[in-house]
Computed example of a mutant assay.
Amino acid sequence: MGDMETKSPIRAVGAKALAAYLQEEIASGRMPDGVKLPAERQLSEQFGASRGAVRRVLQDLKDRGLITQAVGSGTFVRPGAAKTLPAPEIVIDELSATQTSPAELMEARLLIEPLMPRLIARNATSSDFARMTECVERSEAAQTVEEFEHWDGELHRTFALATHNSFFLKILELTNRVREQGEWGRLKRHSLTPERRKEYEAQHRAIVEALRDRDAEKAGEVLTGHLRQIQHNLFGL
């Protein structure tokens, strides 16, 4: 029965998506040296891959010297792993670095991200919600704008993962690449007052709470309002 499940076409796609995701996260530095990977169960649920398929993906990464595993402790990115991987896709890098401005990014996000709650309400797993909560808590505990911005980006990427639709994940990967530009960081540092940060944090919690309740309409409304406020704070629109 387990072999039949592992060979399922859907689960095979999930394993490939997991392998590509982990390699890109390591290569880009978003999973830096020594960071702990999510548990096998969480990866299995997020990517729709069997536990056996997840183990095979991790074993392959381990054999290639990208990760280390310690019984009872977990799986970690091996120091220097990013240097052994090719740079993330150059096409996406060029788009984010030279063709997409922060203002264009916000326009696109307002069109695309509010579409996600309906899929999240239908497809999200308990692991997806646990990751959302972790991102919210870590963003609230962040000591710097850069750290807050990182976990803010991770939360929105977790929303994309929770749709269990690869299109949204690719879009949010591009979004985060644009956010890594110096111009976005400069705008965010100048606009992110303590009061605005508290508002963002409250909005994040409200979005996650609505998604947990499988209330796609409310989550979409709060998410749209959140994005519109960011756009106004950044550009005065």
Rank of each mutant, 00 (worst) to 15 (best):
Thr125Ala: 00
Glu24Arg: 15
Pro38Ser: 03
Ala124Thr: 10
Val54Ala: 08
Asp63Leu: 13
Ser191Val: 14
Ile120Asn: 02
Gln143Asp: 09
Glu154Gln: 15
Leu169Ile: 15
Lys36Ala: 15
Arg56Ile: 08
Arg11Met: 10
Lys62Trp: 06
Arg179His: 13
Arg177Tyr: 11
Glu180Tyr: 06
Ala108Lys: 13
Gly153Asn: 05
Glu209Arg: 10
Ala216Lys: 02
Leu237Asp: 14
Gly80Asn: 07
Thr193Tyr: 05
Arg205Asp: 08
Gln231His: 12
Gly48Asp: 09
Ala216Gln: 04
Gly52Phe: 03
Phe168His: 11
Val77Met: 04
Glu149Ser: 10
Glu113Ala: 07
Thr100Asp: 02
Phe47Met: 07
Gly225Ile: 03
Asn233Arg: 14
Val54Phe: 03
Thr158Trp: 02
Thr68Asn: 13
Gln23Tyr: 00
Gly34Gln: 07
Thr224Ala: 11
Ile26Ser: 02
Ala202His: 11
Thr125Ser: 02
Leu58Pro: 10
Pro88Leu: 05
Gly185Leu: 13
Ala103Thr: 05
Thr68Trp: 06
Lys62Ile: 02
His156Gln: 01
Arg157Lys: 13
Gly185Tyr: 01
Ala124Gln: 12
Val13Leu: 15
Glu140His: 05
Lys218Glu: 12
Gly14Leu: 11
Asp213Thr: 05
Glu149Gln: 09
Ala103Arg: 14
Met132Phe: 08
Gln203Tyr: 02
Ser127Phe: 06
Ala124Lys: 01
Ile112Leu: 14
